[in-house]
Design a protein around this nucleic acid. Structure first.
Length: 110
DNA sequence: TATATGACGTTGC
DNA sequence: AGCAACGCCATAT
């Protein structure tokens, strides 16, 4: 196991409920800035490994990582994250590392 | 070893 | 806001 994998895995396991981060943020926190794509490859290799909260990982734009078939939207909603049109809305778009999820219902009036 | 592919990110239009 | 092109890194063939 490479240090990269070990680090990324640790960061993922450190995430809590409703905490959504992007690939780039994970790589950055793991100490490997710029390897966002490598994180995706790692999760891809992990596959159905439930030990890793892959569903809490989204794109930097807030869009879901995998296809809707993966059920990532449902998993995120189960943790209190608001997903609309395949996109996370509980966090500021751009760089939302450990975005604090606002547990509330339908109130889209920022 | 070289080429192609992809669970990404940024920039430009 | 959305879409296309380029760049970057790791795997697979």
């Amino acid at each position: 196991m490479k240090d990269f994998d070990q680090r990324v895995t640790a960061v993922l396991r450190a995430l809590g409920e409703g905490e959504v981060v992007s690939y780039g943020d994970i790589a950055d926190d793991a100490g490997f800035p710029g390897r966002s794509r490598a994180v995706g490859a790692l999760l891809s290799a992990a596959g159905d490994n439930d030990d890793l909260p892959w569903w809490r990982v989204v794109r930097n734009d807030g869009r879901l990582a995998t296809d809707p078939s993966a059920g990532q939207a449902a998993l995120l909603r189960a943790e209190g994250v608001t997903v609309q049109a395949g996109r996370v809305r509980d966090a500021p778009v751009g760089r939302f590392r450990r975005a604090p999820v606002t547990p509330r219902g339908p109130s889209p009036s920022p």
